[in-house]
Amino acid sequence: MKNIKNSRFLFSITGLLAIIVSWQSILMLKLVEPILLPYPEKVFFELIQFFTTKSFWLDLLNTTSAWIVGLIGGIVLGVSIGLLLALNEKIWFIFEPIVEFLRSLPSIVLVPLISLFLGVGINSKISCVIIVVAVTIISTIGISIRGINITYKRLQTAWKLSLIDKLRHIYLPEIASHLLVAIKASIPLALIVAVASDMLIATDNGIGKIITDSMAVFDTKKMYAAIIVVGFLGYISAKLSTFIENSFIHWKGK
């Protein structure tokens, strides 16, 4: 098992090195202008530079707080509303088209709309993330509760379970795996919306703001460095959510 883990790590490192070598080769062969794709070491130095400036930490704090607060708020709101709507078939049928319509909307289009109402700033960003995450969670809860195993429905009817018992013993564990998948999908989605909000709303801080500002002055080293920071945040969160899913839903796929 340890050998498998070690070789997996080695493969990951090899993949990363291959990308850096290809990147360097493209530039050495002059296939792309350095203004469009700066040398990897310059991007790396720019990254180091980031961590030594106070403004970068403010940008990082701004984006990550919108991302994390919005994500948590969206999950709480989504689970509450989702259960409220999905536990009653008729209510769900009334609201399902609205939920599905909102879920089908490209999440970015909500950003200008919400900034119209809430103005620029962190509140607008958090609200955008909350709405996008909540809609995803509501839809997942609705689908998973409506599609609950028919045998569980038979048993809860036979045992005359109360709503609390149904939720506690059947619905919540049954939808937990679907919910964690939705949360897993919501994490990068929330990051996309948080960064896009930085870019689309005229805010003073945020990683997205670094990207748009540096693009405006063709400071591509800075732009790539900021993109790598965003990618790293997404990667860490994806790993974390997979770990949480595997730790809690031990019965999944068995």
């Binding site: 195993n149 045998t151 569980y152 048993l155 036979a158 045992w159 059947i170 564990p173 937990a176 019965w251």
Partner: peptide
């Protein structure tokens, strides 16, 4: 009877995996 003890035919789906 109010509550019923029910041995379902679908024994795979009848037990809660969690």
């Amino acid at each position: 009877y109010d509550t019923v003890a029910y041995c379902v035919q679908d024994f795979n789906g009848g037990l809660f995996p969690w």
